[in-house]
Design a protein around this nucleic acid. Structure first.
Length: 430
RNA sequence: UCCUCGAUAGCUCAGUGGUAGAGCAUCCGGCUGUUAACCGGAGGGUCGUAGGUUCAAAUCCUACUCGAGGAGCCA
């Protein structure tokens, strides 16, 4: 008897198959029992009518508990009464292990409890669907970059110092030296871009900030492409194409999962190029036109970003922020040195910034000046300056936040469900 | 770090000064098409911790602990 994954059951209509999985839930009615089975690939209902089964099998089915591990043999049938049109007429059940008192009952639960049970919560249909969509988003990103001549390069996770010097880093010891967990691989990716042309990193990133909002994780995953001989406008065009490719891939590969989590896909289908591009100046003018007191040179707060993003039905780029607001390595606009060649991409529906990118400074003199202005040690960044000393070229890059992208595409109200084991402020378990 | 809200059965909650409650889960019984199934019964509690006010505190006050949402910072 062939072992079949639930996801492909509809290819085996009329056949007797074996499913290896778990009992997700059970409903019974004296002479008929419905088993909701899951095997990781999907969910299917098994049906046992008392008159069709041996007494032993019927009694075993009756005694099964939520999340017991079972191997089920049965006949695949179409049935209009079944949720996805297919169900299994159970012929035999092997009990692999019986579960007692599964903590997550079929009832609503609070966040604190579910986070404590995260290792079990992952089995829920909704959580499974989100992780599946996350995996497909990752696949789409890799497919896009790999097919656009990018090479994956892995920057270090243990670093001697801050990349941007802004956020608080996790401190650790490196034998007799201090070390920090990376908050961005960008500077290393610039080195890699000079070796391989177009590169991207895909890895975890750590921020020891005491941020406690629906958009923040302490440990999250970032994709950081870096491109030699690519200037600001071309970088923005690549970002736009990447987001569109992700969206198309998810819409065509995750139909079932999007339905499971109840995502309104019409909002996702609207996500097509071109995305609006507005300047920082225009964004300031927009906020002022809403009656808000906002001065040129101030940074946008989260409510400001939401207000701007809500004015559009697709992601919006905000370009050319004041130089004083942005990181030391960003290249000033030659036509207007008071702003830099950068862009943040704000997702719709209030999901916030999902991409931050810029063209990098390629002039060694200016970079040295920035080190001084930002009080950065020339010794620590000597290698970074070398990139401008030896064959410097215009180059650009950006960072895409994976979890915020997943939260947006899934329509979640918090990023904690976008990653299997979220690291949150004051939460390191499980 | 700051602001706001919360903590009562395994879980989700009601109870706002006078004998500790419901639904789900668990156990027992019933039901041949259930979809968080339903119906009947049973067991299940140091009301977050420590003080205080009161004849009487889950309820009012103080401190602390833990959690949630938000701000700042960011992806």
């Amino acid at each position: 008897m062939a072992v079949v994954r639930i996801a492909s059951l509809s290819d085996h209509l009329g056949e007797t198959v074996t499913i290896k999985g778990w009992l997700h839930q059970k409903r019974s009615s004296g002479k008929i029992i419905f088993l909701q089975l899951r095997d990781g690939s999907g969910f299917v209902q098994g049906v046992l009518a008392k008159e069709d089964e041996s007494e032993d099998i019927f009694a075993l089915a009756q005694s099964l508990t939520q999340e017991s591990a079972i191997i089920v043999h049965g006949v695949v049938q179409t049935d209009q009464r079944a949720k996805n049109g297919v169900e299994l007429q159970v012929r035999d059940i092997e009990l692999v292990s019986l579960t007692h008192d599964y903590p997550i009952t079929p009832k609503e639960h609070g966040v604190d409890f579910l986070m404590d049970q995260r290792h079990l919560w992952l089995r829920a249909p909704r959580q499974r669907a989100i992780l599946k969509i996350r995996a497909e988003i990752i696949r789409a990103i890799r497919q896009f970059l790999d097919s656009h001549e990018f090479t994956q390069v892995d920057p270090p996770i243990l670093t001697p110092s801050s990349c941007e010097g802004t956020t608080t880093l996790f401190h650790t010891s490196y034998f007799d030296e201090d070390a920090f967990l990376t908050q961005s691989g960008q500077l290393y990716m610039e080195a890699a871009a000079m070796a391989l042309g177009r590169v991207y990193s895909f890895g975890p990133t750590f921020r020891a900030e005491k941020s406690k909002t629906r958009r923040h994780l302490i440990e999250f995953w970032m994709i950081e492409p870096e491109m030699a001989y690519v200037e600001h406008d071309e970088s923005v065009a690549i970002q736009e194409a990447l987001i569109c490719a992700i969206m198309q891939h998810v819409l065509s590969h995750c139909e079932q999962e999007l339905r499971t989590i109840g995502r309104d896909t019409s909002k996702l289908e609207q996500i097509k190029a071109p995305f609006p591009r507005i300047s920082y100046d225009e964004a300031v003018a927009f906020l002022q036109s809403t009656g808000q007191d906002f001065t040129w040179g101030d940074d946008f707060g989260a409510p400001d970003e939401t207000k701007i993003a809500e004015a559009y039905d697709r992601p919006v780029f905000i370009e050319r922020y004041p130089t004083s607001l942005k990181a030391f390595y960003m290249k000033p606009d030659p036509a207007r040195p008071e702003v830099v060649l950068c862009a943040d991409l704000l997702a719709p529906e209030g999901y916030g910034e999902i991409i931050g990118g810029s063209q990098r400074i390629d002039d060694p003199e200016l970079l040295i000046k920035r080190f001084e202005e930002h009080d950065l040690s020339k010794e620590a960044y000597a290698w970074y300056l070398d990139l401008r000393t030896y064959g410097t070229v215009p180059h650009s890059g950006f960072g895409l936040g994976l979890e915020r992208t997943v939260a947006w595409i899934c329509g979640l109200d918090h990023v904690r469900e976008t990653i299997p084991f979220p690291r949150l402020l004051y939460r390191l378990y499980p």
